[in-house]
């Protein structure tokens, strides 16, 4: 990112001086950043335990389980689409890995590999149907959401005979897979879990992808104006399909964490989580209409989610307040984003 910091060119006299502050205000994630700081200070005051390293690590872990998905969902939203199947697709991925390995008694890594293929395929099918039919992604992914919900329940009962998958804890490869997807690290006395690292790496890679690669340029373009993008030669269809597959990939990562953090999966889980991912992305500055947003914003959105979620526990309040906080943050952050967007899009 140091390449960004080059000496400013001689400015036109029609450009007013823009200080650091107003430059910062032009960023998509500003609303979320302000919200995150306010929330952090707030919880530090009402619940001093919040500031301890280990509770902070817990907040980060909670954030990462939303944040990993928010990365894919934020990119998809910048590309102008929604994915309502993202929540249950996480569980589909975990179920695939666990049921396949268990049923065929193979090394769990085979199941993990198959789950990746299935997750990417779900994304591909979502994107492909969308591009073929030109239907809104809301409808297409609502349909896949319902189908996956049904498949998760039906197939789990059919294969495993229960609503939860049988335990795979004693199977070959379980320990090594757990070491990757659900490990505990103790760094300087602080317990950190592997999804936190995966999350940070994902955010870093996608930020770079968005801002500094051709594909990133195309993602903004297909979300901003699909027809214009097509007219100048952007591969619109493949960009969008790729974005859905990206959500699939994130779903696979989180699904594998869910599976290996325990050793079994509840087939009915995941429903409703798609909204948490979308909320994180929207709080983070992604426009519902596409073409604007950032990966780091989605991460901050997820962090706000994690802080509100755990902060309420540390403050020893009734968790009923959680949804209220989330709603308030969503409202405030989107209002700030709206103001920013009006400035940017003053056609």
């Amino acid at each position: 990112m140091t390449t960004l910091l080059k000496p400013p060119p001689a400015l036109d006299e029609r450009v007013g001086k823009r200080g650091m502050v107003s430059n910062l205000l032009g960023r998509p994630e500003i609303g979320a950043l302000v919200g995150a700081i306010v929330l952090f200070i707030f919880f530090s005051i009402v619940a001093p335990v919040f500031l301890q390293a280990n509770s902070f690590a817990t907040v980060l872990y909670g954030s990462s389980t939303i944040g990993i998905m928010a990365v894919g969902v934020a990119l998809l939203m910048i590309g102008g689409e929604f994915d309502l199947s993202a929540g249950v697709a996480v569980i589909s991925s975990a179920l695939t890995a666990s049921l396949f390995s268990w049923y065929f008694s193979v090394n769990v890594w085979v199941g993990v590999g198959l789950a990746l293929v299935v997750s990417l395929a779900i994304g591909f099918v979502n994107g492909w149907i969308l591009m073929k039919t030109k239907l809104p992604s809301f409808i297409v992914t609502l349909a896949t959401f319902l189908m996956l919900t049904g498949l998760n329940l039906a197939l789990t009962r059919l294969i495993g005979g229960s609503v939860a998958t049988p335990s795979i804890a004693t199977m070959d490869g379980f320990a090594s897979a757990q070491a990757v997807f659900a490990n505990d690290f103790t760094i300087a006395g602080v317990d950190l879990k592997s999804p936190v690292f995966i999350w940070i790496i994902l955010v870093a890679i996608t930020s770079w992808l968005l801002l500094r690669t051709r594909v990133g340029n195309w993602i903004f373009a297909v979300g901003g104006d699909e027809n214009a993008a097509r007219a100048v030669g952007v591969p619109v269809k493949w960009t969008k399909i790729g974005l859905f597959m990206g959500v699939g990939f994130c779903g696979w990562v989180l699904g594998m964490h869910n599976l290996f953090a325990f050793d079994a999966v509840q087939s009915g889980e995941g429903i409703g989580n798609e909204f948490l991912y979308i909320i994180a992305a929207v709080i983070g500055g992604c426009l519902l209409t596409g073409g604007y947003g950032s990966a780091i914003g989605g991460a901050i959105g997820a962090f706000i989610f994690g802080m509100a979620n755990k902060g309420i526990v540390y403050a020893q309040w009734n968790p009923d307040w959680f949804k209220f906080f989330l709603g308030l943050m969503l409202l405030l952050a989107t209002i700030v984003n709206l103001i920013v967007k009006r400035r940017a899009d003053s056609k």
């Binding site: 051709r214 340029n217 899009d345």
Partner: peptide, 21 residues
């Protein structure tokens, strides 16, 4: 209709689809 993406910077629009890498 010009085929430009309103929210994107001028330079990104200029090279959209034919970016220099």
């Amino acid at each position: 209709d010009l085929a430009v993406v309103g929210l994107m910077p001028i330079w990104r629009n200029f090279f959209l689809g034919s970016e220099i890498t």
